[in-house]
Amino acid sequence: MYEFDYHRPGTLDAAVKLAGEADAKILAGGHTLIPTLKQRLAAPKLLVDLHAVRELQGVHLKDGQLVIGAMTTHAHVADSALVKAHLPGLAALAAGIGDPHVRHRGTIGGSVANNDPAADYPSAVLALNATIITNKRSIKADDFFKGMFETALAEGEIITHFSFPAGIKSGYAKFPNPASRYALVGVYVAQHGSDARVAVTGAGANGVFRASTLEAALKGNFSAAALEGKSVPADGINSDMHADAAYRAHLIGVMARRAVAAAH
């Protein structure tokens, strides 16, 4: 790692101020940033650690919305009685990220802000039509993800919370890469009244995306049977040594059916 300065502010205001300094980088759980620094792929002058900003942690229910602080760990989301009761699909997704040690450090805010094309959380945020709340504004999920590792966040802007609609039926299924365990394909499905939203991670050449053909098939009939024979075109799907585009496109259909079957 190159040298850097480190601050652990105790308030959001102080964090925002520090994050606005030149070449500052925000440190959440660090499970992407620290490996990146080790490889000398980034050289920030200053790390702003958000661990001491209490208001960014925890889960609560407010006006029919499940509000999750950006610094809430995967383990916390997975074990939260509120998340299990109101969005069990999201709790199950969190329980399947990485391994127990990663889940003790990694955070929902870090994962979504990084928008790794194979991360799990972006698919849930997009399919559940969540709102991303920052120190400046609220951003709808459809406007947030801008492509691989790209989001609508401005320099120094900090995600504070996520607001998920509570109590809707949803589920997640992923086919993990056998070596890295990242999603080769992960599909999150969510029922919104008679409509459905289906978001795919791991497969898109531009990161997480909505599968409109699968959403249309689930409209008015949120069942695995409604997806029989439905698939996603291989255009714009990743091809690499782990899986070619046709295989990944096929897996999207399979994972979507499993996600609907697992949804509750």
Partner: peptide
């Protein structure tokens, strides 16, 4: 339990 190689 955490991984001390990925924590400052």
């Amino acid at each position: 339990a955490i991984k001390s190689c990925t924590t400052l």
